[in-house]
Design a binder for these strands. Structure first.
Lengths: 212, 212
DNA sequence: TCAAAAGTGTTATTCCTACACCCATGG
DNA sequence: CCATGGGTGTAGGAATAACACTTTTGA
């Protein structure tokens, strides 16, 4: 994700099945690595992305005809990079809006949409926002990121309160300078926790208070 | 799951790596089937389970040393059978309490616990309860199933109201006869929808009402 | 002094849990 | 008529969305 739209990194295929179409970065699993190690290696080697803030399994895609030729089983991942990093990506690689994908190879468009849905739901019941934001940010910036990811505007006021109540926000004491059109300078915050955690585990059917 | 405890179907390994230990049913993926077709086939062929009410991917387990010998990548599934079916299982197969697992093969205990956690969270924000219950049930029975799956007692009153508010319960008009110690006969209900659906998609950060 | 952007206070609503109370049956 | 289990009404509380209002800046 970058700026105010949800984006995905794709690279243009140079080989023949679906040559020229855009596809998700990835590759073969080596015998000595597990799938997560593998996807981190591929991203580092092929598209120079080394600082993923969050990686999680999405699903296995295994329909026999999803790829021409012998069947290929793919384990898809959701990986998130904060909005302020702009990695040097190779020539044949670029970011694409998730809501306006180009012609993709194989079933990769389906995979991207599944990843988007996963991100959207996890934003509301986990602290996953930390993976989208820079280390230090204003509430307005964060609101922009959440709004872009969710696909609808949310209010900065309430976002701040929800995150604060959950103990996720830490004020830094610093402020950001206002823009050229003036306005009150915004306070800078950071996330208290850098790893994912479930913040709202039981929407209903909660366990009795003692067990919480 | 059966009766008032969460249970999992395991079978005793007859071959040598970890011979005699209990393991999850499964097997190799054929080239002409996807992973879900494969697991359904294996369950039907090997343990005679044909009526799964719900099947979903859990995760891929791929650590190189998870199985002795050449690395095996496993796609684990969560499959649910209603409490009233008691399939004929082979001699070397039996149900085991999830909270008191026997010595299992490989990483299968970890997989079972992951499945239990998935079930627990989905019970609260989806209608997944339909997969645990018989076609027709009393609220008390349903409460027993939810309590067993969640690991803590929940109140029948509130369970009924939560499910009713979401439009999931359909009264059948029938009643169940009381037990031998008397008591008012319980009304029988069924679930309105037989497939999984998300009933509480946004715990917080809801979209504006128009978009809902 | 005005416009713009950020932050705070307050209210109304929604949803949920807990608990008291009423109903129907068998012995 | 009493014990047992099922069902309903209601009150209190927690969390959140909406919105009016205040604060701080640049021009």
């Amino acid at each position: 994700m970058r700026s105010d739209t949800l984006q995905v990194l794709l690279w243009r295929r140079a080989l023949d099945p679906h040559i020229g179409r855009w596809s998700l970065p990835g590759g073969r699993l080596r015998p000595d690595e597990d799938v997560e190690t593998s996807i981190r290696r591929q991203l580092a080697e092929k598209v120079d992305i080394k600082k993923l803030k969050h990686v999680e399994q999405l699903a296995v895609f295994s329909t026999p005809d999803r790829v021409p030729g012998p069947r290929v089983v793919a384990t898809a991942f959701l990986g998130l990079v904060p909005s302020d990093v702009d990695p040097e990506v190779p020539e044949d690689t670029s970011w694409h809006r998730v809501d306006d994908l180009p012609r993709t190879a194989f079933d990769h468009a389906e995979i991207v949409l599944r990843a988007r849905d996963r991100l959207r739901s996890k934003l509301s019941y986990t602290n996953l926002g930390f993976a989208l934001a820079p280390d230090v940010f204003t509430i307005s910036e964060l609101r922009g990121l959440y709004s872009a990811a969710l696909g609808y505007r949310i209010a900065a006021t309430n976002l701040q309160r929800v995150l604060a109540r959950r103990g996720l926000l830490e004020p830094t004491g610093q402020t950001a300078p206002p823009g050229r059109s003036g306005g009150r300078p915004a306070a800078l915050f950071s996330f208290a926790c850098k790893g994912i955690q479930v913040t709202d585990p039981f929407a209903v059917l909660r366990p009795p208070p003692a067990a919480r």
